[in-house]
Design a protein around this nucleic acid. Sequence first.
DNA 1: GTTTATCATAAGGTATTACTTATGTTATAT
DNA 2: ATATAACATAAGTAATACCTTATGATAAAC
Lengths: 314, 314
Amino acid sequence: MNLTFRQLKVFDVVARHLNYTRAAKELHLSQPAVSMQVKQLEEQVDSPLIEKLGKKLFLTDIGQEMHNYARSTMQQLIDLEENIGQMKTLQQGHLKLAVASTANHFVIRLLAHFAKIHPKIRISLDVTNRSSLLDMLDKNECDLVIMGSPPDGYNLMASSFLENPLVVVTYPEHRLIVKKKVSLKDLVKEEFVMREEGSGTRIAIERFFAEQELEFKTKMDMSNNRAIKHAAEEGLGLAIVSMHTLELELKAKTLKIVNVEGFPIYRHWYVVQREGKRLSPIATVFKDYIMKGADDVIEDFTAPLYKHIEQSAD
Amino acid sequence: MNLTFRQLKVFDVVARHLNYTRAAKELHLSQPAVSMQVKQLEEQVDSPLIEKLGKKLFLTDIGQEMHNYARSTMQQLIDLEENIGQMKTLQQGHLKLAVASTANHFVIRLLAHFAKIHPKIRISLDVTNRSSLLDMLDKNECDLVIMGSPPDGYNLMASSFLENPLVVVTYPEHRLIVKKKVSLKDLVKEEFVMREEGSGTRIAIERFFAEQELEFKTKMDMSNNRAIKHAAEEGLGLAIVSMHTLELELKAKTLKIVNVEGFPIYRHWYVVQREGKRLSPIATVFKDYIMKGADDVIEDFTAPLYKHIEQSAD
DNA sequence: GTTTATCATAAGGTATTACTTATGTTATAT
DNA sequence: ATATAACATAAGTAATACCTTATGATAAAC
C-alpha cells in the first residue's frame, strides 16, 4: 500500500462535501483531477471508498475508516508543523547542558534567569567532572558544556565568557589572614589541600607555580570541591579554589581569602561545543545569552565576591 | 509542506540505524538514494534532521520530533491496513439493518444466531414502519431492509426468503374457534381489527378479499401490531396477522387461530436493498445467510407455529 | 602518510504523477 | 422527452520523483 498525502487530502475534502465538483472547487482543481485522486486511493486499498447511489454520494464503511485515518494523519501533520515551528522560534526545545562542578554555582544562577525568559524550554543540566564533560561532548550528549579551559586535541570550540579568579582561602583565624600581603615565598611554606591531578583547577595552579619557579606542598588530594573547602575550614591546609564557589562560605565567614601577592590567578570559564556541531536554535540563543546578554546577572553574582578580595587587601 | 510516505519510511530506517549505508542495504537501495530522500525531507521542514559529527550521525531535536511523527504515522497506516483487511474478511464491519415491526420477532432470532457466527461485527437494527423503511433505503441509511412485499417505483431490489402466513386469530372461547372449518362467507360476517391502510399486511388482506369478491368490516384501525392482538384478545374483533408474530400468544393461549377456508394467506418476507447499491462485505454475507443458510434457525422458529394451524384444522 | 569507511554531490535516464481539456454516461428535474 | 447537473473516462503533456553510477570530501584507523 503506497498512499500519498495528496490522496488523503483530496479524499478528505471529497468525504466532507460528498460532492466531487464542490471538492474540486475548494481544491482549485478540475473535477476529473479529484475523481482520479480518489480512484487511485481506492486502488491502493482495493476497495471502493465512495459509492454513488442515484445522484448522491456516500462513504462506504471502508471509506469511513479511511476518512478517519486521513483526518487523523493530517491533524498529526499539522501538530508536527506547529512543533517544528515552535522549536525553530524557540518557544519549545530542549537545551542540554553540562557544567563542571566548580561552575555549578553561578551557572545555576544564569539558568534560573534564562529559564524565566524562555519559559517553554526544557533544560537538562548535568554537573560532573572534567573527563565526563569531555566524554559527553564526544558522544554528542549535550549541546554545550561550561568548564575551565578545555584541553587541545578534542576538536572542541571554546569561547571564554567570564573571569574565573582562583583565590587562596583558609579559616578566619589563620595567621596569614591578618597579614596585609603574603608573599609567594611565604605561601609555599604552607601545606595545601588540592584538587586531584588532571582537574582544571589543579592544572592551572601547577602552571602558575611553575611559572614562578616555585613548588607547593600538597597535604591532601581531593576530587570534590566542597570537601576541599571543608578541609580548609577544619585547618587541614590552605585551599586554592575558584572564588565563584565561595559565595556561602564567605557570607557565613567560615572561610576567608588570603591576600597573596600575584593572586587571584585569573583563569576563565568557557562555553565549549564540538567543533562542526551545528547548535540547535535554543542552544545558539543560550550561547549568545551567556556571551553577551548575561552581564547583569553575572555582575550581581560576582560583585559581592570581589569585595572580599578588596577587604583582605586593605 | 508536502511530505511523502516514502520519505518518512526511509527516514525512519536511517534514524534507527543512524547510518545511511546500512539503511540503504535494508531498503535495497543505493546509499545516495537514501541520502536524497532524507535531504528532501529536510528541505520540506527547512531544518536539518540529522547531523554528522565526525563519523557518527545524530538526530537533531527536530529530527527526533520527525522520527516520532514518522513512526506514529506508519503505525497508523498499519492499523488502517489491518482494519480494512478485517472489514474485507468480515472479521469487522457494521451491518445496518431495518425491519418492519411485524418481522421483528423472527429477525431478532436470526440476528442472535448470525451475531454468534460473526462475533466482531457490529449490528444496528431499526424496527420501524413501512414508510420509514422505504425512506431509510432512499437515504442509504441502511444496508438491507426486511419487510413484506415492497412497492414498485422505488428502484428497489427485493428477494423473498420466507413464507409469511397470515392467519385469523381471536380469543380461545370464540365460537368460530371450535368449528372445524369456517367458510369465507361466514368469516366476512364478523368484524375485524385491522392494520392501518397502506400497511403491508392491510394491502395483502385487501387484495385477498378483493380476489374473492368479498368485503370485510373493519371495526378498528390500528397501526401497532401488538395493539391489534390485544384487541383480539379482548374480543373487539377478529384479527388477521402474520403468524410469525404470534409466538407468545399461541404459547400462552391467549389467542387461537381460526381455521378459515383459504387461510393462511401466504405472503412472503423480503430482503430489500436499493437497486445499484453495492453491498458491503458483511451485508452480502448476511443476505446470503438469510437466503440460504438460515433454514435451520427459521425452521426452529416456524415449526411450532405451524402446529397451531394443524391443530385448528383437526 | 596512507588506507578505509562513510556520506555528499553531480549527472543522467526512466517512470510516474498530477494535472489539463474533451467527451461520455446517468439520474433527476422539467 | 429533453435538459441539466454531476461523475466517469480518455488522451495528452509538463513536471518531478526516484533511482542509478561515478566521483569528491572527510574522519578515523593503521
